Simulated scan of single mutants.
Amino acid sequence: MQSSGSNPQLDKNTLRRQLLTQRQSMPVEQWRLFSQTLCQQLLDSSLWQQAQTVLAYMTFRQEPDLSWLFLQGQDRGWGLSRCVGQHLMWHRCNPLDPQILKKGKYGILEPYPDCPELSADEVDLILVPAVACDRKGYRLGYGGGYYDRLLSSPGWASIPTVGIVFERDLLEQLPTESWDQPLKAICTEKGLFSAKAVL
């Protein structure tokens, strides 16, 4: 489903800039509080409780910070991604261990290549970072297409996905394109809910 307007990509770029500016202007104390509240919403969800191995991300540009979730979920297996060419490579690692992380090409912390690799059949849940999400499960990312490529790949498409955004970045509808992959659920500091994708 495409948005009204002749150029969805232009709409996405404009919206991305606006939302990133707004998010990065959030007071630090509010960001920390909202992040911890969002983590608690995840902890209370059945998706989390049923998962043993969870893919996550290291916060960047004042995304919701998952550090509290990492602390509470030390009985889980964790995976973090590394950008390799046009794709994400996932590695099993402890996100609380700074010695196994380094800055990647986008300035985001990622695991060293010698951390054990994770395949799709080992993963129970994917926590997906976003600039914004909408109520149908569509996500506005950073423009690289990494998650859309991942989630359209065999084996990965069936794994539960949760878009992680603050409530202010949960929109009614985003401009979409044919390759956009809707997520199964969205989590904000206000709660976790199933997306209502129209396929």
Rank of each mutant, 00 (worst) to 15 (best):
M1R: 15
S3K: 09
S6P: 03
N7V: 02
L10Y: 04
L15A: 13
L15G: 11
R16E: 09
Q18L: 09
L19F: 05
L19K: 02
L20N: 02
T21K: 13
Q24N: 14
S25E: 14
S25H: 15
M26Y: 03
P27I: 05
Q30W: 11
Q30C: 11
R32P: 06
R32M: 09
R32I: 05
F34K: 15
S35T: 01
T37R: 08
T37A: 11
T37D: 05
C39A: 06
Q41P: 04
L43S: 00
L43Y: 00
D44I: 00
S45F: 02
Q50L: 13
A51R: 05
A56T: 10
A56G: 15
Y57L: 02
Y57A: 01
Y57M: 03
M58T: 06
T59Q: 12
F60R: 09
R61I: 04
L66C: 03
S67C: 14
W68M: 01
F70D: 01
L71W: 01
Q72A: 08
Q72T: 01
Q72S: 07
Q72M: 04
D75P: 06
D75C: 07
G79H: 10
G79C: 10
S81M: 12
L88W: 11
M89L: 12
W90A: 05
C93N: 07
P95V: 00
P95W: 02
L96A: 02
P98T: 02
P98D: 01
I100K: 12
L101Y: 10
K102R: 15
K102E: 14
K103H: 11
K103T: 05
G104W: 06
K105V: 12
Y106A: 09
G107Q: 04
I108F: 04
L109W: 08
E110A: 06
P111F: 14
P111E: 11
P113Y: 03
P116R: 09
L118R: 08
S119F: 06
E122F: 03
L125G: 05
L125V: 09
I126G: 02
I126T: 04
I126S: 07
V128T: 13
V128N: 08
P129C: 00
P129T: 00
A132N: 11
A132E: 10
C133A: 14
R135H: 12
R139K: 04
G141W: 08
Y142S: 07
D148E: 13
R149Q: 14
L150Q: 09
L151F: 07
P154D: 03
P154M: 03
G155Q: 11
G155S: 03
W156R: 04
S158G: 10
S158Y: 07
G163K: 08
V165C: 05
F166K: 08
D169Q: 15
D169S: 12
L170V: 00
E172L: 15
L174Y: 09
T176S: 15
T176N: 13
T176H: 11
S178H: 13
D180C: 06
K184D: 14
K184R: 05
I186W: 02
E189L: 06
K190V: 06
G191Y: 05
G191V: 04
L192V: 02
L192K: 00
L192F: 01
F193H: 14
S194V: 02
V198W: 13
L199I: 12
